[in-house]
């Protein structure tokens, strides 16, 4: 059982930026996270994600596909976030890339992924469980 993101001491839900150009995948994950109590921002591309970050909108964690259309893919997004927003953890996902190829982040979830697994990982990284390992 995954802990709810809202705690007694923090009434504001954690904000997860979900970046995926596949609308159906993005929708299902976003709904799952919202049902778990997270605030979710949906972006279709790395460019959209960067625009949102630059707007100053709150983001506590980014979950991004690697392969996306546009000038910024998931790997580039992760590098940008690491440089400009080092406090924001990034989880990358892909059906093609393998974790051992990635140096941008230690957090990688291969596609297809189990929603429960992603939810548990996000909850853990955000320190919302007792065994958090950020």
């Amino acid at each position: 059982m995954v802990s709810q993101p809202k705690t007694e001491t923090d009434a504001t839900p954690e904000c997860v930026l979900v970046v995926d150009d596949d609308a159906a995948i993005r929708l299902v994950l976003a709904d799952t996270l919202r049902d778990a109590g997270f605030c979710v921002i949906e972006a279709r591309s790395g460019t959209d994600a960067v625009s949102y970050l630059r707007s100053g909108g709150r983001v506590d964690l980014i979950f991004s596909d690697i392969q996306m259309p546009g000038s910024i893919d998931g790997l580039q997004l992760a590098r940008h976030v690491r440089a400009a927003y080092p406090a924001i953890p990034v989880i990358l996902t892909s059906g093609k890339y393998k974790a051992e190829y990635l140096d941008s982040t230690k957090n990688f979830v291969p596609k297809p992924y189990a929603l429960d697994h992603v939810l548990a990982l996000i909850t853990q990284i955000l320190g919302l469980t007792d065994n958090a390992d950020k």
Binding site: A30, R44, S51, Y52
Partner: peptide, 21 residues
């Protein structure tokens, strides 16, 4: 996204299920 996100959140706060495209 900067237009869509706050409107979607507002509608969710008003009790609607919102699907974003």
């Amino acid at each position: 996204l900067l237009i869509r996100t706050p409107l979607a959140q507002y509608l969710r706060d008003c009790g609607f299920q919102v699907v974003e495209a």
